[in-house]
């Protein structure tokens, strides 16, 4: 019990004094996850919206596939990205394994289906409401997609936040492709896993505390977005 309290105190000390190792780890986590979620949105938003708004062969299959891929186990994603990037893999020559880029790729693969599937749900409802009006106005396909994405902006921001929440808290994939190398690929979750197993609890606790704060902040942001969308009837 004594060691628990002393670890907690030391963890607080790390946070309050803005320990440089701690900041580096948080910084890399944020950089990796924000980059991955941005790419996932760039890919997932149009795909999800297109599946929702257009009829084309294979549309239902794609919708089912996206939903199924939402639940991809992170370790499996990590393994697949590892195999692709490893020396003998198809992208081996790029030498990306155990770099932040590898972690970005893994998180992007993990989050893109989530963004796309949730986007499809959001845009499908909106499209049902708008379809006839748009047909009457003669809105072209690309403009329709853009209008649906824009009018779904509040709900879609919460989709992006959901993707962020999933990626920042994920450990299985990034530890496989990143390797948790000190000062290179150590992010919050991998550090917590490693330091805990080494019995170095204060850093793990400090990072765990930060992760919790981030989770709360993301949820608060989602609730604030919802409230403001409801207030302006933009929900």
């Amino acid at each position: 019990m004594d060691s628990f309290w002393s670890a907690l105190l030391e963890a607080l000390h790390l946070v309050i004094t803005l320990d440089s190792d701690l900041l580096e780890i948080i910084g890399l986590s944020m950089q990796v996850t924000i980059t991955a979620v941005s790419i996932a949105c760039l890919i997932g938003l149009p795909i999800g919206a297109a599946v929702a708004a257009f009829r084309f062969p294979g549309r239902t299959f794609l919708a089912v596939l996206l939903n199924a891929m939402m639940g991809l186990p992170p370790v499996v994603v990590g393994l697949l990205v590892y195999l692709t990037l490893s020396a003998s893999g198809p992208l081996g020559p790029l030498g990306l394994l155990y770099t932040p880029t590898a972690m970005i790729i893994a998180q992007t693969v993990l989050v893109t289906p989530i963004v796309a599937a949730l986007t499809r749900q959001v845009i499908e409802d909106l499209n049902t409401e708008y379809a006839e009006q748009f047909a009457s106005m003669g809105v072209r396909a690309a403009d329709r997609l853009a209008a649906l994405l824009w009018d779904g902006r509040y709900a879609l921001m919460t989709v992006a936040l959901a993707g962020f929440g999933r990626a920042i808290a994920e450990v299985g994939a990034v530890i496989i492709v990143g390797g948790n190398i000190n000062h290179v690929t150590r992010v919050m979750t991998t550090t917590i896993a490693l330091e805990t197993s080494k019995g170095n609890l204060q850093l793990a606790l400090a990072l765990g505390f930060i992760l919790l704060v981030i989770a709360f902040a993301v949820n608060a942001a989602v609730m604030a977005l919802r409230a403001s969308a409801v207030r302006t009837a933009y929900a």
Binding site: E129, Y130, E132, Q133, A135, S136, M137, G138, V139, R140, D143, A147, W150, D151, A233, Y234
Partner: peptide, 29 residues
């Protein structure tokens, strides 16, 4: 023909935007 026609539906379908932006969208089309 539809390009030269307009329709007001039984239930108004307005975009989740300002009054101005709603008209701006229609004229932009």
């Amino acid at each position: 023909a539809r390009r030269f026609q307009s329709m007001v539906f039984q239930r108004p379908v307005l975009l989740r935007r300002s009054v101005f932006a709603n008209l701006s969208f229609a004229l932009g089309v």
